[in-house]
C-alpha cells in the first residue's frame, strides 16, 4: 500500500533539516578526513579483519541471545497482569541509562571469577567468562537487549489482541497462538528491535572493554580497535571507523530491503 506523498509543514522543515545536518555532518567529517590511501593497507591488516569478523559475529550472537530472551520478556511486560510489572519494566531498561562501563563492572560482580554466579561456574565446571568471546557477547547483550525488549513490547501493545481471541476459538492453545499468530503479527516490530539491538551491540565499547577486556582475536572488537588505534595513530582510527560504518550500513540496508520486500508482498 502506498500513500500519496505528504507535504511537510513549514515549521517542521527547518528543525528536520537541522536534525539531518546534526546527524550526518559528523559522518561527512569522518569521510572527508579519511586518508583513503591507507584504506587498502588497513584492510590488508589481518588484525583489522579479525576485529571486524569478531564484531559482526559477536553482535549477531548478542542479537540472537536478545531475541531468545527478550521476546518472551517483552510478552510478559506487554501481556501479563502480574503485579510489579512497571517495576520490572524499569529494571529491564536500567542498562539504557547505566554508563556501559558501570554495566561492565556490574557484570564482573555477577559473572566474574569472584562474582556470585561466576565463582560457582568456576568451582563447579571450571568455566570462567571474563576475557573470552562469550564475555563480549554477554556484555553486548546486556547493553543492547533493552532496545529489543522496548521495541517488541511496543509492537505487542499496538497489536490487535482480538486476533489472539480468534485463535483461541479456533482451537489454538496459548503457545500455538503465540507462535502462529502473535509472533507473525509483531514480526515487523521484532525485526526493527533486532536491528536496533544489533546496531547497538556492534558499536558497544564500555561494557565490553571492562568485562571482556581487550585481546586481539578473542575480545578486541572494532570499537575497541578504533579506540586503541586513536591513542597511537588517529588516521588509522578513522579508517577503521569508516570500515565499521560501511559494513554496518551495508548490512542494515541489505536486511531492510529484504524485510521491506517481504512486507510489500504481505
Amino acid at each position: 500500500m502506498t500513500r500519496p506523498a505528504t507535504r511537510v509543514p513549514g515549521p517542521l522543515l527547518v528543525p528536520a533539516a537541522l536534525g539531518v545536518a546534526f546527524l550526518v555532518l559528523p559522518l561527512l567529517g569522518l569521510l572527508v578526513r579519511t586518508p583513503w590511501s591507507q584504506l587498502a593497507g588497513q584492510l590488508a591488516e589481518p588484525a583489522v579483519g579479525q576485529a571486524l569478523r569478531l564484531s559482526l559475529v559477536s553482535a549477531t550472537l548478542a542479537t540472537a541471545l536478545s531475541l531468545v530472551l527478550g521476546v518472551p520478556l517483552a510478552w510478559v511486560l506487554a501481556r501479563s497482569r502480574a503485579r510489579g510489572r512497571s517495576v520490572l519494566r524499569a529494571l529491564v531498561t536500567v542498562p539504557l541509562v547505566l554508563p556501559p562501563v558501570v554495566g561492565g563492572v556490574a557484570l564482573f560482580l555477577v559473572l566474574g571469577r569472584q562474582g556470585i554466579v561466576g565463582s560457582w561456574l568456576d568451582d563447579a565446571f571450571g568455566i570462567t567468562i571474563p576475557f573470552t568471546t562469550a564475555a563480549v557477547v554477554i556484555a553486548e547483550t546486556f547493553v543492547a537487549m533493552p532496545f529489543l525488549v522496548i521495541s517488541v513490547e511496543g509492537a505487542l501493545r499496538a497489536a490487535d489482541s482480538r486476533f489472539e481471541d480468534v485463535a483461541a476459538t479456533l482451537g489454538a492453545g496459548r503457545w500455538t497462538t503465540f507462535r502462529r499468530v502473535t509472533l507473525p503479527l509483531v514480526a515487523p516490530g521484532i525485526a526493527a528491535g533486532a536491528v536496533l539491538c544489533w546496531a547497538r551491540a556492534l558499536g558497544e565499547f564500555g561494557a565490553t572493554i571492562t568485562f571482556a577486556g581487550n585481546f586481539p582475536g578473542t575480545t578486541q572488537t572494532m570499537p575497541l580497535a578504533v579506540y586503541l588505534a586513536l591513542q597511537r595513530d588517529p588516521d588509522a582510527a578513522i579508517v577503521l571507523s569508516v570500515v565499521l560504518l560501511a559494513v554496518s550500513l551495508a548490512t542494515l540496508l541489505l536486511l531492510r530491503d529484504r524485510w521491506l520486500g517481504r512486507a510489500g508482498a504481505a
Binding site: 563492572v105 566474574g112 569472584q114 571474563p130 576475557f131 571492562t210 581487550n214 585481546f215 578486541q220
Partner: peptide
C-alpha cells in the same frame, strides 16, 4: 600470555582489584 590488553594503567589495576586476573 596475557588475556587482555587494558587501555591504561588504572584499568589494568582495576582487573586485579576485582580479582578477575
Amino acid at each position: 600470555r596475557p588475556d587482555t590488553y587494558e587501555e591504561d594503567a588504572r584499568a589494568t589495576l582495576q582487573k586485579v582489584e576485582l580479582g578477575e586476573v
